[in-house]
Amino acid sequence: MALSSMWRQRAADATRPGLLATIRRIPPTAWFGFAVILLYGGAALLAPWVAPYGENEVVSQTPFAPWGAEFWLGTDQLGRDFLSRIIFGARNSIGIALVTTILAFLIGGTLGIVAATMRGWTDQILSRLVDSLMSIPDLIFTLMLLAIFGSSVFNLIVIIAVIDATRVFRLARASAFNVVTLEFVEAAEARGEKLPWLVRQEILPNILPVLVSEFGLRFCFVFLSIAALSFLGVGLQPPMAEWGSMVRDNAALISSGDITPLIPAAAIALLTVGVNFVADWYLNETGGLSHDEG
């Protein structure tokens, strides 16, 4: 058994009044966040069954049909059902943001841990590279790369993931650095354990809470970036339903006092608030400990 897991076990024992107590301690804001995430996840997974009409089905002869019994939220600029587009939009926007964030964590997390454990030249080169990439504003860099490579879903995911990985790298490196200098890692090194074992058994378990909480925040950031890019017309391309581009395509309605185009924007805000609440709670629940130790 790795020394660090014994250490963690002790720490867990000390603070473990049982799962039930943890659940009872969840603040209302986090419950709200869970409810929002569940609702959105459900809509995303079950979109074809929940949505009254298809994603690209033209159901009305007149564009911009008003709210009514047939189309609850009216229709969009091409006569497609607005509510159905929102539900399918959840699937597209959340799915793509999730894939992008996971990719960013795979790239940034791996490189960050490698930099912290190898130190020396590897760390220097990777850190300077990340610093210079971070000195270009995110949105501007993304716009430039999209112009060069074209805005396909694949390019969008890779470009945003790489740019976002710089932030993940910073955090992973900093928190892994704190762990690497602790005694049990040195002890394992002295025992002659190999690097992959060290990373898997000692480092990763100890920086995981910080990374998981950061995952929530990065997801929000990626989600907002994709929405902004689609709103600008250079992100996800039609006919794909996406909340940012739905705001853009129906913005004309606002000048007649119609709030329909604001609904997708509010949906974006609700999800990011919910995820923020949950990430905050999670960080307080688990991260406080490892911060104090670091």
Binding site: C220, I254, A265, A269, V273, N276
Partner: peptide, 23 residues
């Protein structure tokens, strides 16, 4: 401030447009 970090920039823009310019 939590709300304003979570809300997309264009949401603010359109809400202000709706309230101050149109209504």
């Amino acid at each position: 401030s939590l709300a304003s970090i979570s809300v997309p920039d264009f949401f603010f823009a359109y809400v202000l447009m709706l309230l101050l310019a149109i209504n």
